[in-house]
């Protein structure tokens, strides 16, 4: 039991962790919610921040790592500022997800799993996101983009680029 100094977690994250602490009858229930806190702040499971969080929650670090590797929505390494996840499951494939992926690769000049050189975008494929009726679709960070067409994808990428350029 050492003493950890919190260096990485934001005040907001720490506040949320403390709220979670007493929320469940059994403390360990917070594991996934804690991963969300880390993911929300860093966009991936930042290992040092996770260590800090485990210390605050007084839950063995391994419990978080086990979960982070089981639940696939949490990237375990840094991703682009905009993390693009394309659904590849049947309904989306029937509506062209493979071509959507090819289009994104071409536009972003990266491979599956890659990050653009400016760290702006990263690209992965995921399984069904519960948006099959609006296929093909992709998720960028927290947001769903549905009924995609080439034109719409170009628009979305441009918007994100310019948003980030201004902000």
């Amino acid at each position: 039991m050492g003493t950890t100094v919190n260096k990485l977690l934001s005040e907001k994250s720490i506040k949320e962790l403390n709220r979670l602490k007493g929320l469940y009858p059994v403390r360990k229930s917070v594991v996934l919610m804690v991963l969300h806190v880390i993911y929300d702040q860093f966009g991936y499971i930042q290992p040092e921040a996770l260590k800090e969080a485990a210390g605050i929650m007084e839950i063995p670090l391994i419990d978080f790592h086990q979960a982070a590797s089981f639940y696939t929505m949490f990237p375990r390494e840094a991703v682009g500022k905009y993390h693009i996840q394309v659904c590849r499951t049947l309904s989306c494939e029937l509506r062209g997800s493979q071509e959507l992926v090819a289009f994104l690769k071409e536009k972003l000049e990266i491979d599956m799993g890659g990050i653009t050189s400016d760290s702006m975008f990263s690209l992965t494929e995921v399984e069904c996101l519960g948006s099959c009726g609006t296929a093909p679709m992709m998720q960028i960070n927290d947001t769903y983009y549905e009924n995609l067409t080439r034109a719409r994808v170009e628009q979305i990428l441009d918007d994100l680029r310019s948003k980030s350029g201004n902000g």
């Binding site: 229930s29 969300h36 696939t72």
Partner: peptide, 27 residues
């Protein structure tokens, strides 16, 4: 009512996996 968020695992829709997951474990 507490809204508990999963983490990307189809299996957690299976009711007992959902419970194991809600307890803080792998689903």
């Amino acid at each position: 009512i507490i809204v508990h968020r999963g983490g990307g695992a189809y299996i957690c829709g299976e009711e007992t996996a959902l419970l194991t997951s809600l307890e803080g474990n792998q689903g």
